[in-house]
């Protein structure tokens, strides 16, 4: 009976780790590798079926060959590379120092409680990258300033929509609409040398880069189902962005 409880604890822990890795934007192979490492530290084998919304995981005790299977539903995705990095580091340390179950649990708890950058820092940093994009596509500094402002407003819209728990595609649509409406003003009054570049780059902060890159890495690893799901999610986001851009351009009657 004692081993049964221990196995349940291990299954819970591994599911927790897999779920936060998946939600933070790790690709499927990375999730598998990390779970395997932790399982080997705890003297178990683990087999799992990982999808975007659910994880099924079986742990088998190496000595008694007892097994335990559990299913967990995943919360909404929120990309967080600090978590991926810390869990990866923790898995190496666990192997080196041969951690126990409670030690790993404690480490995972501290990892989860790490703070994110505050919303204001994110707003400013992402607005600077919007300006950077505009520069890359040949805008002058007036275009850059407008790209900065539109990105700022768009991201602010996205964060507010997230806070009110809107559907994520609707949030992206609203953000894209806000950003491209502001940028369209520049095109309408022909501000700067390349107002088109401002309009094109004002919505780039919404592009689901991580989802698309992960989808192709999953394809290369032959995790085809997960790759397809990520690609479809990315495509839906791109459609939402395009729709926002459409509406703004129709309103301003651009070309």
């Amino acid at each position: 009976m004692k081993t049964k409880n221990r196995l349940e604890g291990i299954a819970d822990l591994l599911l927790e780790i897999a779920s936060i890795l998946m939600v933070s934007g790790a690709n499927t192979n990375r999730v598998n590798v990390n779970i395997d490492r932790f399982a080997s530290v705890l003297d178990c084998e683990s087999y799992s079926l990982i999808s975007q919304k659910t994880i099924i995981l079986t742990v088998i005790d190496n000595e008694t060959k007892e097994n335990y299977t559990k299913v967990k539903n995943l919360p909404g995705h929120k990309i967080d590379f600090t978590i991926i990095s810390s869990i990866s580091k923790a898995s190496w340390k666990a192997i080196e120092e041969d951690w126990t179950l409670s030690q790993i649990k404690q480490e995972i708890n501290t990892v989860i409680e790490q703070k994110r950058y505050s919303n204001y820092i994110v707003l400013i940093a992402v607005s600077f990258s919007g300006a950077g994009f505009c520069k890359i596509f040949g805008g002058d500094y007036l275009n850059l300033a407008l790209a900065f402002i539109s990105t700022f407003a768009g991201l602010f819209m996205l964060q507010s929509a997230h806070k009110r728990h809107f559907n994520s595609y609707i949030s992206v649509f609203l953000a894209s609409l806000t950003a491209s409406l502001l940028a369209s003003i520049g095109v309408y009054f022909n501000l700067g040398t390349q107002p088109d570049a401002t309009l094109a780059t004002s919505v780039l902060f919404l592009v689901p880069g991580v989802a698309l890159i992960n989808s192709f890495t999953d394809f290369i690893d032959k995790n085809v189902l997960n790759g397809m799901v990520r690609f479809a999610n990315g495509l839906m986001t791109v459609l939402a962005i395009a729709l926002g851009l459409f509406v703004a351009m129709l309103i301003f009657q651009l070309k």
Binding site: I79, V126, F128, F205
Partner: peptide
Amino acid sequence: VGFGILFN
């Protein structure tokens, strides 16, 4: 860097 900060 801006995107890096968005991805925390």
